[in-house]
Design a protein around this nucleic acid. Structure first.
Lengths: 347, 347
DNA sequence: AATATTGAGGTAACCGGTGTCATAACATAG
DNA sequence: CTATGTTATGACACCGGTTACCTCAATATT
């Protein structure tokens, strides 16, 4: 007589009874542990299959001190960016039993670390996924190591164990932008970069600078201004550049948000894009293709990168000596050339 | 001698020993249950306070058959919308122990229901939050009722228990749009609405139509076209409208995405906004304020609504007879008038 | 032949809480 | 001063898994 419970959920005890073995043996089968005769293993598996039994996550979490939760730690406020990250991760987690939990953070918040650490201590997540710029905090990762918490990171450069990270190679992306503008014949090229506290700022600026240098063009200090990766800062920085006596004919903005700000400032200043000013963005957001004229932007496959990082979290945990190189090499950057860039107007 | 465990986590047993009471009494204090002498309660509370003890979520979930997970079920793919929803919910959940788990769904997927139901059965979430258009599925909610699963909904109309729902009153929002265009003097007004399968489509269209009627204007069938709430469909629908012999002088799009499509189509057709064509959107996304000219759009406080719905989930569970009217009444819609609307050009 | 090793499997305690029920302490009524 | 509630508290099983440890037979080793 089957003694059904609350929602008629089947437990490991039910399976054990049906297969006429002990709970422990069923547990061995579930976890693919040795010391189970092949015939027994098959018999148990068959019953599990037929009944659709799935081990209770809470009970496992309690016993193993490790839940099925995967925490996504982020601070980038761009909706487009963060939803792409989420979609990528969710895609990878789809067929697994893991659940994605959102852990937004504010890096400047004094108890930002504590919030994450207390989440880890209380909920014993399977692991954490860090995306920029939360991934760039070495102190935090040190603390997590102490707690023996599993995590992987997405970042623009290598920082730590390469087998637990996906590198987005922002410098390479910026090089594409620099190369493109130089080839068009621009020489008076400006760059609006992000805040110094972001590694991507340095990477993108360095890559851009290197590409220009390769073409014998100097990125002048007065043509290099600091924005905040926001629309408003893009407007301000562009206005500043337009006021210079010998204004630039091309601007590479550190991200699309700021590039959109450049569009606005250009319009206000009566500059036509691309005739009077070429603009290149970074991120290739949806907006880039919808503005008028459609904007040239560096495209980074965020979704795929997010999926790869989620995969890494799951696999790197099992096989510690796993090679992440393959995953990393799939991150392919390219420049989406649209109508916001053209050769400089002849005087 | 304190026998520390793995991460030095303190358990209810530790507290019990320190307070010289049984586990059960500590449990009573934690859950604010009666039958605890005031002096005992205070003593236990003090120790809990001092040690920073927090009950283990997995153990509670196992015993109570109810976890601290709150599932967000959505299918709206707009990044801006969904991040606003998330931000609002997270804000409300911040000081609680609940964790937000993402459960994206595809309504047309045949096993969309099964995925949600199996999540519920396996993870025993505290509750689910449904946002449009996932909230409009009566079959699904019936099944959840069977499972005795707690849920709340955000929707544009009332559908079921009002104390477990937040109404966004889309019809009222659309009325604002209709009223605005009519007051400007437009009579040849078109509406690009969403798919018929969305309740918001009907609400917005009805509200818009009613506002026009109030001004003695008819919403002609040939000026009412169906889009898909996407940018591309907006472009197509607008192109169709422009080809009509007596084209409209104003268009109200069912959402900003489609309104952006109208912008593109207008530009391609050489129509200047607002001189040749007035455009009104719905949602008041970030893009609305950044396009050129900045777009008039119906503003709905999504974030606040999301926060309210999360609050409802938590509170309605405790006091079943809780009044949700207050929460609902705070949802205040308004029209953000920008430069995309103007009186029709005189012939 | 005696002993060690291995394989297959079971038993019982445990993870950290909560439910049920019994009981001690105390207050009130008769 | 006992009878009777009521309040405060604890003992113990249980939620559904896992780990540590044990048994027992079959095989390998000396």
């Amino acid at each position: 007589m089957t003694h059904q419970r609350d929602r008629g959920t089947i437990t490991i005890t039910d399976i054990a009874r049906m297969a006429e073995v002990s709970k422990k043996t069923v547990s061995r089968v579930i976890n693919d542990l040795p010391s189970v005769k092949e015939s027994t293993r098959l018999r148990v598996k068959k019953i599990i299959e037929e009944t659709g039994f799935v081990p209770n996550p809470q009970a496992q979490a309690l016993a193993l001190r490790r839940s099925l939760l995967v925490g996504l730690v982020y601070d980038n406020p761009s909706p487009q960016y963060i939803t792409n990250i989420q979609i990528g991760i969710l895609k990878e987690l789809e067929e697994t039993r893991y659940q994605l939990v959102l852990r937004p953070a504010i890096r400047t918040d004094p108890d930002c670390h504590d919030q994450i650490l207390s989440f880890v201590r209380q909920h014993n997540p399977f692991g954490l996924i860090f995306v920029p710029s939360m991934s760039e905090d070495p102190e935090l990762t040190d603390k997590l190591d102490e707690l023996d918490c599993h995590y992987v990171r997405m970042a623009c450069v290598e920082l730590g164990d390469p087998s637990r990270q996906i590198k987005t190679n922002d410098a390479d992306g910026a090089k594409l932008a620099g190369d493109h503008l130089a080839r068009l014949g621009h020489t008076k090229i400006a760059h609006i970069h992000g805040p110094e506290s972001f590694l991507s700022t340095h990477e993108r600026r360095a890559g851009f600078q290197e590409a220009l240098k390769h073409h014998g063009i100097e990125l002048k200090p007065e043509f290099t201004v600091e924005g905040a990766y926001t629309y408003a800062s893009g407007v301000d920085c562009a206005k500043h550049l337009f006021r210079l006596t010998d204004r630039p004919t091309a601007i590479f903005a550190g991200n699309d948000e700021m590039a959109m700000g450049v569009y606005r400032a250009a319009q206000d200043a009566g500059l036509r894009i691309p005739h009077d000013l070429s603009v290149v963005g970074y991120d290739d957001t949806t907006m880039a293709s919808r503005v008028s004229p459609p904007m040239t932007s560096v495209h980074s496959p965020i979704r795929e990168a997010a999926r790869a990082i989620a995969k890494l979290l799951i696999t790197s945990h099992k096989s510690k000596e796993h090679k992440a190189q393959d995953a990393r090499s799939t991150i392919h950057l390219d420049l989406n050339i649209r109508q916001s860039t053209a050769p400089p107007a002849t005087e």
